[in-house]
């Protein structure tokens, strides 16, 4: 079990070791006695990490709001309503998830560069929605199945219309499901690399993972940058890891089965 946690634990420890003893490794010294934040200061000072993080926050939040708005009604309809084309709709939604990102990358890149939409938040939000919408729909329809139908039926009996039932009964009941699905959609968008990397080249619009890549790895990956790369890696992991730590209790099979995206 410790083996599983080790890689992440190790970068956290390494990032806190400071720059002076970063390379002087001794087993007795593996757990740093004092936490030294020099690496973080250097990483944050040298790059626009704060700016990139703000970009990522904005993109992930917007993606999440967009996908919840679109996915919640769709999920409810698939779970509860009987209408023509329900099965087909559900199949299209779910199976769209099976298309690998790298395959979509080509046409999307060509299209967006032609439309001069690269380097825009808008394009990236829409692209992230292509995988967060199927994912949140999947998670939410699972959730709606677990809400007893009696409550809605009571609403209909009292003469409420579908719209009133949705607003007054379903929406308040959905809050936990929406929060969990939203948290996962946020994580998916936050950790996404490929689309963000292909579409956004300007320093001002970069997402945090792409910024870290551009600044601390690749050409710039001399060993003296390693300490800063560790600090930056931990820094970009923090938001998604914290959200995950809080919501992982809702982590049922459906969630991660829906989380497969290449």
């Amino acid at each position: 079990m410790l083996l599983v946690i080790f890689p992440f634990l190790w970068i956290v420890l390494s990032s806190l070791r400071g720059v002076d003893d970063f390379f002087s490794f001794e087993l007795s010294n593996a757990l740093p006695k004092t936490f030294d934040l020099t690496s973080y200061k250097l990483a944050l000072g040298r790059s626009d990490l704060v700016r990139w993080t703000a970009n990522s926050l904005f993109i992930a939040t917007a993606t999440t709001l967009l996908s919840l708005t679109v996915a919640a009604p769709a999920a409810f309809a698939i779970a509860r309503l009987r209408f023509k084309g329900r099965a087909a709709g559900a199949t299209i939604l779910i199976s769209s998830y099976a298309i690998p990102s790298i395959m979509l990358a080509i046409p999307v890149f060509v299209l967006l560069t032609t439309l001069r939409l690269s380097n825009s938040y808008f394009a990236l939000i829409i692209l992230h929605a292509t995988f967060t919408i199927p994912f949140t729909t999947w998670v939410l329809q699972d959730f709606y199945h677990s809400i007893p139908a009696d409550l809605e039926e009571a609403g209909y009996i009292d003469g409420a219309s579908l719209r009133q039932v949705l607003w007054r009964i379903i929406l308040p009941l959905s809050v936990p499901g929406l929060l969990a699905a939203g948290a996962y959609s946020f994580i998916l968008s936050w950790t996404e690399f490929l689309f963000a990397f292909l579409l956004v080249q300007s320093n001002d619009a970069m997402t945090a993972p792409v910024g870290v890549h551009a600044f601390f790895t690749g050409r710039n990956a001399t060993e003296s940058v390693m300490a800063q790369l560790m600090a930056a890696s931990v820094f970009v992991s923090l938001p998604s890891v914290i959200i995950f730590a809080y919501f992982q209790r809702y982590l049922v099979s459906g969630f991660l089965t829906g989380a497969v995206k290449g």
């Binding site: 790895t217 790369l229 890891v241 991660l256």
Partner: peptide, 15 residues
């Protein structure tokens, strides 16, 4: 055990 799912690929690569 399930934590790696929430770690961005860039940090996985860094690690």
């Amino acid at each position: 055990i399930t934590l790696p799912w929430a770690v961005p690929t860039i940090a996985v690569a860094g690690a």
